Simulated scan of single mutants.
Amino acid sequence: MTGAGRLAIAGSADLVMVRQQVRAVAIEAGLSLIDQTKVVTAASELARNALVHAGGGTVTIEVVEDGRRRGLRLAFSDDGPGIPDTEQALTDGFTTGGGLGLGLGGSRRLVDEFDLTSAPGKGTMVVVTKWIRR
């Protein structure tokens, strides 16, 4: 896939680039318009979280296959302060940044697979996958 790869998230312009690249690769992978919108929305929120809460990070965008299906996987990582309580962070309404507190939980609902790994002082890794519906 030509659009797959790794992008830096270091400023607000990068948030636009992440959305554009995720949409381009989602189209290449064959996701429906609805699923493209869902994965772009999740990517936008996760990229914004990396920028706001960790000062930046990276996203790796790739098309994946598991033998019976194809999808789009996004891996967001940062070297920020980490999340002390990941379960609490996934609870709707919980926020440390003054927002609505729907980012992580909302992102989890928009994708098929969601894996959050974080610890204080260790940064955060969020890997999401959206599978193509047949």
Score class of each variant (00 low, 15 high):
Met1Ser: 10
Thr2Met: 10
Gly3His: 14
Gly5Phe: 09
Gly5Asp: 12
Arg6Glu: 15
Gly11Leu: 01
Gly11His: 05
Ala13Met: 12
Ala13Leu: 14
Leu15Asn: 05
Val16Pro: 01
Met17Trp: 13
Met17Lys: 14
Gln20Tyr: 12
Gln21Phe: 10
Gln21Ile: 06
Val22Asp: 02
Arg23Trp: 12
Arg23Thr: 08
Ala24Asp: 05
Ala24Phe: 12
Val25Met: 09
Val25Asp: 11
Ala26Gly: 15
Glu28Gln: 05
Ala29Ile: 05
Ala29Asp: 09
Gly30Ile: 03
Gly30Trp: 02
Gly30Ala: 03
Leu31Phe: 03
Asp35Thr: 10
Gln36His: 08
Thr37Leu: 07
Lys38His: 14
Lys38Val: 08
Ala42Asn: 03
Ala42Lys: 00
Ala43Tyr: 03
Ala43Ser: 09
Ser44Trp: 08
Glu45Trp: 03
Glu45Pro: 07
Glu45Ala: 11
Ala47Trp: 02
Leu51Val: 10
Val52Ile: 14
His53Tyr: 11
Ala54Asp: 07
Ala54Glu: 04
Ala54Val: 11
Gly55Tyr: 01
Gly56Ser: 02
Gly56Ala: 01
Gly56Gln: 02
Gly57Val: 04
Thr58Tyr: 14
Val59His: 04
Thr60Met: 08
Ile61Arg: 02
Val63Arg: 07
Val64Trp: 12
Asp66Gln: 07
Asp66Leu: 03
Asp66Ser: 05
Arg69Phe: 00
Arg69Ile: 02
Arg70Cys: 12
Leu74Gly: 01
Leu74Phe: 10
Phe76Met: 08
Phe76Gly: 01
Phe76Leu: 05
Ser77His: 04
Ser77Asn: 08
Asp79Tyr: 09
Pro81Gln: 15
Gly82Thr: 12
Gly82Met: 11
Gly82Leu: 08
Asp85Gly: 09
Glu87Asn: 06
Leu90Asp: 11
Leu90Pro: 11
Thr91Leu: 09
Thr91Lys: 14
Thr91Cys: 06
Asp92Ala: 11
Gly93Ala: 12
Thr96Phe: 07
Thr96Ser: 13
Gly97Lys: 00
Gly98Asn: 04
Gly101Thr: 08
Gly101Arg: 00
Gly103Phe: 00
Gly103Ala: 07
Leu104Lys: 01
Leu104Gly: 04
Gly105Pro: 00
Ser107Arg: 04
Ser107His: 09
Arg109Phe: 02
Leu116Val: 04
Ala119Asp: 10
Pro120Gln: 13
Pro120Trp: 11
Gly121His: 00
Gly121Val: 01
Lys122His: 14
Gly123Ser: 09
Gly123Tyr: 06
Gly123Gln: 08
Thr124Cys: 10
Met125Trp: 05
Val126Thr: 13
Val128Gly: 03
Val128Ile: 13
Trp131Val: 00
Trp131Pro: 00
Ile132Gly: 10
Ile132Pro: 06
Arg134Phe: 12
Arg134His: 15
Arg134Tyr: 13
